[in-house]
Simulated assay, not measured.
Amino acid sequence: MFSVLLLQLIGRNLFDILLEWPEEMALMTMIWLTFFGAYQCTVENTHLKVSFLEDRLSDKNKPYLELFSKVAMLTLVLLVTFNTYPLISIVGDIGTPVMAVPMWVPYSFIWVSATLMSMEIICQIIDTVKKIATFKTSNEQEVETVGEVR
């Protein structure tokens, strides 16, 4: 994106050549970077979050809050996934004004990244459920061990 905009800047200011396509290319690149960046944040679990509630919960209850937040995220991302596809069908054949790239190209970036995010969040939900089950199992074993000692 930087290179394309730099090319436009050099062409306009040094050679007095007006290039029209770099703005559209930069816009599509920005959409691509934004949505695939959101997917990468999902994979790394680095999205911004307000943690005041999580900080007040015990270690026993934190996985439940995590599970709730992951299910809420999945719901939102699935809404984006399923609602973007019809939009792609409607505007797909319309071309961009300068480059005449079909609009399904930039809109597909959103759909693909939302689909990838959905799959990643499902994997994270499965891991969280396993964490809850492991925590319950380890607590039950501790209770049995304490009962045997007495």
Rank of each mutant, 00 (worst) to 15 (best):
Q141V: 10
L18I: 15
T145F: 05
V4P: 05
P102A: 02
M103P: 11
V112Q: 02
T81A: 04
L65D: 04
M28V: 12
F68T: 10
P102V: 04
N83C: 11
V105K: 09
T75R: 01
L19H: 10
L19E: 05
I31H: 03
L14P: 08
Y64G: 08
A26T: 07
Q141I: 11
E24N: 10
L53G: 06
L33F: 08
R150D: 14
M1H: 05
S89A: 02
K62L: 00
D59Q: 11
P97W: 06
V112D: 02
V91W: 06
K130Q: 00
F135S: 09
I10Y: 08
Y39R: 05
A133Y: 01
E66F: 00
V71H: 01
N45V: 12
V105Y: 08
D93V: 13
E148W: 09
I90V: 13
M73V: 03
L57P: 07
N83T: 15
M25S: 14
P102D: 01
M25N: 10
K70G: 01
L48E: 00
T137E: 04
I125R: 01
V43K: 14
L5N: 09
F36R: 11
L57F: 05
F36C: 10
T128E: 01
G11A: 13
M28S: 11
M28P: 08
M30W: 12
L67Y: 08
M73W: 00
L57W: 05
T84Q: 06
S58I: 04
N83I: 06
S58K: 06
T84M: 10
V80D: 01
M25R: 07
P97I: 12
V80K: 01
H47V: 11
T137A: 12
A114C: 09
K136W: 05
P102Y: 02
D16F: 14
K60H: 12
I94P: 07
L65C: 05
L6D: 12
E66V: 13
V50G: 00
L76H: 04
S51F: 02
V4Y: 09
E20P: 00
E24K: 07
N45K: 15
T84I: 11
S51A: 09
L48T: 08
K62Q: 08
E120S: 14
L48F: 07
V50F: 02
T75N: 04
L5Y: 06
G92R: 08
D93G: 15
L18V: 15
M28A: 10
L6F: 12
P63G: 08
T34I: 13
W104R: 15
F68R: 09
A26G: 10
E142I: 12
M119C: 14
N139E: 09
L27Y: 10
E140W: 02
E120R: 14
S58C: 06
T137L: 06
T42V: 06
G95T: 13
K130G: 00
L57G: 04
V146M: 05
P102F: 00
